[in-house]
Design a protein around this nucleic acid. Sequence first.
DNA 1: CATCCGGGAGAACGATCGTTCTCCCTTGTC
DNA 2: GACAAGGGAGAACGATCGTTCTCCCGGATG
Lengths: 189, 189
Amino acid sequence: MTEEWAERVLDAAEELFYGQGIQAVGMDAVRTAAGVSLKRLYGLYPSKDALVEAYLTRRDARWRGDLERHAAAVPAGRERILAVYDWLERWFAEPGFRGCAFVNSFGELGAGSPAVAAAARAHKEAFCLWLTGLAAEAGAEGAAADRLGRQLALLAEGAIALAALSGTVAPARQAQEVAGTLLERALAE
Amino acid sequence: MTEEWAERVLDAAEELFYGQGIQAVGMDAVRTAAGVSLKRLYGLYPSKDALVEAYLTRRDARWRGDLERHAAAVPAGRERILAVYDWLERWFAEPGFRGCAFVNSFGELGAGSPAVAAAARAHKEAFCLWLTGLAAEAGAEGAAADRLGRQLALLAEGAIALAALSGTVAPARQAQEVAGTLLERALAE
DNA sequence: CATCCGGGAGAACGATCGTTCTCCCTTGTC
DNA sequence: GACAAGGGAGAACGATCGTTCTCCCGGATG
């Protein structure tokens, strides 16, 4: 099936693009890693830009899907919000963790690729909105939930960046601590 | 003087590298923007790697210098810490703001360039240390200052990333609010 | 005025990139 | 067994990159 081939190509592309940066990876490296002929590669994705877009799209879905599944296994409210930072910590510990794929792609191509910029923006916005939902679930109302959601997103973002640069998982715990205090204060009414 | 030429080249390189990414900018573009012959360019910086390293070194010094000067104009303590986020907000509003040069460079080249990775790590570490100093100045002691410094760095980092992606200055204010609560809690003893 | 030398413009070179094309072998069909 | 179709391997192409080299001019020196 062409579906399976497409997925194999995306698997290879994701590993390479995420691990080494997009410009540093040539189509030939993707071809080799995926074990696919160049002809088939270009049959599946008509250009590198298209492959990059598919990479970001699938990564967004999988990243948020994994996170949401992890959070759903924990009671709603304060506990579920804190579980987000547990999940981040596990992510930081994975071999090959190199920060946020969207921040990296945006930093590399954002200025010259509106599609990448839009994908990155959409990813962060969806993440922030989801956190806002969690905040509402936990008892924050209206504008308070919105504010709390943005603050939680800020903490996650900072933790991701610092974990990548430092090569340490510690920022996850630090962000979790701050999130804890914010919740304490926001939910005390 | 060769000094002035070197600075002109660095000015051009910084604008281009920061605005478009490092790999997207060729030495010829730097040459043209700086108004310098290729021969002189390679006389000043023997390779692109050397130019990139000089770019990051000078940017680190200037960025932290500007920030420290801004903070020094404000009374030490809680007020000075909050002023950091005012400075960030002004930075975010500058035309051409594209996030943290070190995070972007690391995302683009970190995997393949130990020098860039080290520069990025050093920059963040220095920033975090400086924040810890501010926290100590404000009354936090020992481990508490360290913890507060890391939390403040986390907030700043998240604000920078989200401001770049969203194209908005709002994350500076949000980070400042969180910093305010943290200070309130930490300095209440 | 003759000479020499530093530096400017940009051609040249080898590598690599994204993309397309050619050639050949395999496989399925009559 | 003949033949058409499709896909694989990789050569080929034009562009661009980092870096070096060539050629030439202008001005300082005797």
